[in-house]
Design a protein around this nucleic acid. Structure first.
Length: 670
DNA sequence: GATCCTCGAGTTCT
DNA sequence: CTCGAGGATC
């Protein structure tokens, strides 16, 4: 065969394979059998192997992957990749509609509604019809270059349909996701190989796309759908609907189930029908996206810092699954609180297996009227913490007796007392559960910060009878530790060292660590600053305590009762005897100046450059304060990655929102 | 007395 | 993160 005819054959094969890829992956309507497809593909591979000079980057064979990278490169997005405001309530959707009508001065702001795919969003760039670059969302401004990995996704055309006259330059936004059946078989394959499977399809998609070795990505069944034109060379489609049509014409996969809505009622109906469809879809969706259809109106409304004003994500009610309460256990916390806990028949909710859910307190159990053996709906409140949503009555079932709080502590057998909605174990001095909790708390990071003294070790020490109160920690010997299971020379030495190190402690941390009711990190600091030494605090009268700002009758009573207890005084005495030195709080210094004086910061989401504690430290160094909830008085909300409800709260209250970079600029001198 | 702002405490799974 | 409740404020 002459070289030019080989080149022609290769080109023909590529055309044909692309055509079938499009039919198979995008249209879901294959015209040839898998075997026939494989034959075409094999022929192309063979020809290219024999003529490596004819291989091009956009050949279908190049999807299988390139050699591994050491790190994904960072790329700046051509346009910032915004996210969408989430809405759960119908009323808020109507409010959105009202706002559109008001701001656009129209009665008919038509919308386009489409499913919201649960995957990870990507930016795709086509030059001269050819796929040249793709990136993850990252922080919205800068993402990771995953071009090679995206090339392995069959549904993603490497070449746009030339006959549809695609623009010379095109930037598209899409969602990479994994079908449920593919996700399941991937997980099965992984577990067979002894690997840990993915928790849910979204994690699987994200983990697969962000591989350094694109050959791994190639083996993962990813797919993609496109839903937005970010930029293009040439005339813009007039509406979002036309945008989707154009994308489809150019050969890009778009959400098939979509609707043009002439009123907000149609949007609400679409939400309903889509929700009903949800369980039968082969992929996960978590709501619908509602966009103003006309692009000139979109432009007129513009964007907020983080999301466009002309679109919303109207989420579905959180996933609920049905399961059975196998038992209701009662756990005892460090303060002696008895907390009922539903032990469930394990069930998958939103991709995670749930086997237990807290019932908070007896009132809650009564309110929900749940009993052992009941069938219940379980949801993940706030998408994380499992909760029992409601009981599902089963007609004709014989129910067990209602749950009653035990009148004796399940751990130590002491009497149980009721206080408001809560029940407490009164065996403060004898309850092993409380002792363990108290020691864990004492050793925790924000208290004495004893490294290597975790839940497991505490249990061992208590069960072995080596530690009966907090002060006993400081008479432990290395020899004793070595008798415990899992302790060898090194671990014993390390623990002894951390215990030794904890002996120099600030008053604030000690107060926190003692576990006095109502005294947490904040109040501990307030008390430490005001009284400066432990003895002065212990001698303070009720009146003196009440003078202190933020200390009211409850907290002062709690302090009084703690310090009047002979046992507590004795523990403190022994702590000091064994070498605990309590340091008064250092005088407040603001090495960074007082540039942030009077400003309150609230953090939400993850920060890349610092831990929450470091960020807090930075703020305080400049004379500012950090708080945990957003109010009108909040100066700034710093939104990291994956911000939570505090960001919405901030927007509602008009509190200034900072990115991490802006925050860094504020706390960096110069 | 009501309202707003914060804090404390408990919680699941990986 | 959310809930309940303490404390400040008007």
């Amino acid at each position: 065969m002459a070289d030019h005819s080989i080149a022609q054959r290769i080109a023909a094969l590529r055309r044909e394979i692309r055509h079938h890829d499009h039919l198979y992956y995008t249209k879901d309507r294959p015209e040839i059998s898998d075997a026939e497809y494989d034959r075409l593909f094999r022929e192309l591979v063979d020809l290219e192997t024999a003529h490596p000079d004819l291989i091009t980057a956009d050949s279908p064979t190049q999807r299988v992957g390139a050699p591994p990278l050491s790190e994904l490169a960072k790329v700046s997005h051509e346009k910032p990749m915004l996210s969408l405001d989430s809405i759960v309530d119908q009323e808020d959707v109507r409010a959105f509609d009202q706002r559109m009508k008001r701001e656009l001065e129209t009665d008919q702001p038509f919308y386009t509604a489409e499913p919201k795919f649960d995957g990870l969003s990507v930016e795709l760039v086509y030059d001269q019809g050819r796929f040249v670059r793709g990136a993850t969302r990252g922080d919205g401004m800068i993402g990771e270059d995953v071009t090679v990995n995206l090339r392995t996704i069959r549904a993603l055309p490497l070449q746009l349909h030339a006959e549809a006259d695609p623009p010379a330059h095109l930037v598209v936004r899409g969602e990479v996701y994994m079908r449920l059946d593919e996700f399941q078989s991937l997980n099965r394959r992984m577990t067979e190989r002894g690997e840990e499977g993915f928790a849910n399809p979204r994690n699987a998609a994200a983990g697969s796309l962000r591989q350094l070795d694109s050959r791994i990505t190639a083996s993962r069944p990813l797919t993609v759908t496109c839903y937005d034109i970010m930029a293009l060379a040439g005339p813009n489609p007039a509406t979002h609907w036309d945008e989707l049509e154009s994308l489809a014409a150019w050969g890009l996969p778009v959400p098939e189930h979509r609707q043009r809505c002439r009123s907000i009622d149609e949007v609400l109906r679409f939400h309903q029908t889509t929700d009903a469809l949800r369980d039968n879809l082969p992929f996960e969706i978590d709501g619908i996206v509602v966009k103003l259809d006309r692009r000139d109106w979109q432009d007129q409304l513009g964007s907020k810092s983080r999301s466009p004003r002309w679109a919303i994500a109207y989420k579905f009610a959180p996933r609920k699954e049905i399961t059975v309460i196998q038992d209701i256990a009662v756990s005892v916390g460090r303060t002696g609180t008895l907390t009922p806990l539903a032990l469930l028949k394990p069930v998958e909710v939103g991709g995670v297996t749930i086997s237990r859910a807290t019932l908070h307190n007896a009132d809650e159990v009564a309110r929900k009227d749940v009993r052992v053996g009941d069938t219940v709906k379980v949801e993940r409140a706030g998408d994380v913490i499992p909760a029992i949503a409601e009981r599902v009555p089963v007609p004709g079932e014989e129910r067990q007796a209602p749950f009653v709080m035990p009148d004796h502590c399940p751990v130590c057998g002491s009497a149980v007392a009721r206080e408001g909605a809560y029940f407490y174990c009164t065996g403060q001095t004898v309850c092993v559960a409380q002792l363990k909790g108290a020691i864990e708390h004492f050793a925790s990071k924000s208290a004495l910060n004893i490294d290597g003294l975790g839940k497991k070790t505490v249990a061992q020490l208590v069960d072995a009878g080596m530690v009966n109160d907090l002060a006993d920690l400081y008479s432990l010997t290395k020899e004793q530790l070595l008798t415990l299971e899992g302790f060898a020379d090194r671990s014993a030495t390390l623990l002894m060292e951390s215990i030794e190190r904890s002996k120099a402690v600030s008053l604030e941390r000690l107060l926190m660590g003692l576990g006095i009711r109502q005294v947490g990190q904040h109040i501990a600091r307030v008390l430490a600053k005001h009284f400066r030494t432990l003895s002065r605090l212990m001698e303070a009268t009720q009146d003196e305590l009440l003078q202190v700002r933020e200390i009211g009758p409850e907290i002062s009573a709690s302090l009084a009762s703690f310090f009047s207890e002979a046992r507590n005084r004795e523990v403190i005495e022994r702590l000091v005897e064994r070498g605990l030195t309590v340091n008064p709080p250092a005088a407040e210094t603001h090495p960074g100046g007082r540039s942030l004086a009077g400003k309150t910061f609230v953090f939400t989401g993850g920060l890349a450059g610092y831990s929450r504690d470091q960020a807090k430290e930075l703020v305080e160094r400049h004379g500012g304060q950090v708080s945990s909830s957003v109010s009108k008085k909040t100066g700034y909300v710093v939104a990291g990655t994956d911000p939570g409800s505090k960001l919405d709260q901030a927007q509602k209250l008009g509190v200034q929102i900072l990115t991490e970079a802006e925050f860094t600029a504020l706390v960096t001198p110069g």
